[in-house]
Design a protein around this nucleic acid. Structure first.
Lengths: 247, 247
DNA sequence: CTACTAAGAGTCAGTGTGACTCTAACGTGA
DNA sequence: TCACGTTAGAGTCACACTGACTCTTAGTAG
């Protein structure tokens, strides 16, 4: 007899990083996947995640499972969507609250890679477990649309960066070349970026300025209940869009 | 001893309708709330919703609980966000997958209203149960931003409508007057609306044209996994953004 | 010191939008 | 029946934004 069980709650994360693509020579989007070590879908690649403990915040669970399996710490983490179709997982009903994360390119190389954790180019994925292919497609769509109206590209970069680096990020995400002069004009007008006064030396051309991200401007773009400045209670940059419930 | 229980899964919905506001004389956003008939927060107003049955799709559960409590059938239903902070509900952990819905103005008047179900103006709400005030704020923000880039305003209207009616909807949602000529130009250029050839007769002025909504155009605005045309498996207009998992 | 390359400023034309004007077409009331 | 009031709907103008492009600046590499 099949006992009626309540739906189980899982948290998964789509993690994006920029890495050089050997085939195209350009930077492209990659994401780390973990191999399933149990049924269902044993052996298939899947998004990192796990069951939600009763006493852990969902975003914290996303950050933790992501760190445990890949060793990464995201610079950006936001809830994507909750997937819970009845037939999406064999056996008991599973509801997955899915987050998406951006990690710095430099750190991506430090990520643990073994037989069970591996990076894949975002647009050349194998068949994944469950409905994870659709989840990744949706996350990709969100990233690409959001990078145009919001300013999240800096999450792929370090503390300071040149406009050329920032443009490279946009080009990689949007998969098209951007005019350097126009890109500069748009970014400077948006006020999301601040000149540090420093310049990047040692390059075989005119040395570019180094910019820093402007936190204040960024928060104005978010929803009404974006986390207040300096009150982040999570170690990471905290989720932006989502409201936060007061206890 | 408190036994460790897994988090419980609830589905709630923020329902919006346009109704005339006696105070301002204009149309404004209203939403139906239900009075809690049990602890916690007994007696407080709350969003309609309920526990998620194991064998029911989340969007179907949202539509059902909404119908059972208010008698309404939404023209638009989309997942909003999943709220699951540890302290948001006294007692056991509760994860709420929240949807938001738009209902036609005409139908809103038919909604069941009794001692335990009542309409409230969206920006003059009482203190609600749990974190439902924040949830409504977030839903309002989503509605107001989405009405500008997507074309969902028609969900408040009937099958055919005049541009003045559509403009009234936008004005009520955005809370500011819009230039009739410019509004016409923008809407016509967007292609989201089709001239039926009919005109609204009996008005004491020049009779306005009646328009119909253009489904094809609308779907292009949605995400990559928007439901295919004519394949809606739900009685309602189906959720747009969210992907759908194949079994 | 010259060539090369990328940084960064500036120009120009096409497009979208807010503010505004003007004409068309109905019902209403004298 | 005919001027009048009112809204529908077309059209105009100025300004802001953006893509394509040019030009100057400032470094390294030979």
């Amino acid at each position: 007899m099949t006992e009626i069980q309540p739906p189980a709650l899982a948290v998964s994360t789509v993690i994006f990083a920029l890495r050089p693509d050997l085939e195209s020579g350009f930077m492209t989007l990659w994401l780390p996947l973990v191999r399933r070590t149990r049924e269902p879908h044993l052996g298939l690649w899947a998004l990192p995640g796990g069951w939600l403990p009763s006493d852990e915040e969902m975003s914290a669970a996303a950050a933790r499972t992501l760190r445990e399996t890949t060793g990464l710490t995201p610079k950006y983490l936001e809830q994507l969507y909750t997937f819970g179709d009845v037939g999406r997982s064999p056996g008991n009903r599973v509801i997955s609250v899915v987050y998406w994360a951006l990690v710095q390119s430099g750190e991506a190389d430090l990520a643990a890679v073994d037989d069970n954790v591996q990076w894949f180019p975002a647009d050349r994925l194998p068949a994944l477990a469950f409905d994870h292919n659709q989840i990744v497609d949706y996350a990709l769509w969100r990233l690409r649309t959001k990078v145009e109206y919001s300013r999240i590209a800096h999450a792929f970069l370090g503390e300071t960066f040149t406009l050329a680096q920032l443009r490279d990020v946009h080009e990689a995400v949007l998969r098209r070349a951007l005019d350097p002069a126009n890109f500069r004009r748009t970014i400077e007008a948006s006020g999301t970026v601040v000149d540090t006064g420093l310049r990047l030396a040692g390059v075989p051309h005119r040395p570019p300025r180094l910019y820093r991200y402007n936190d204040l401007q960024a928060l104005a773009e978010q929803g009404p209940l974006a986390p207040a400045l300096g009150l982040n209670d999570t170690p990471l940059q905290s989720t932006p869009h989502p409201p936060r419930s007061t206890t």
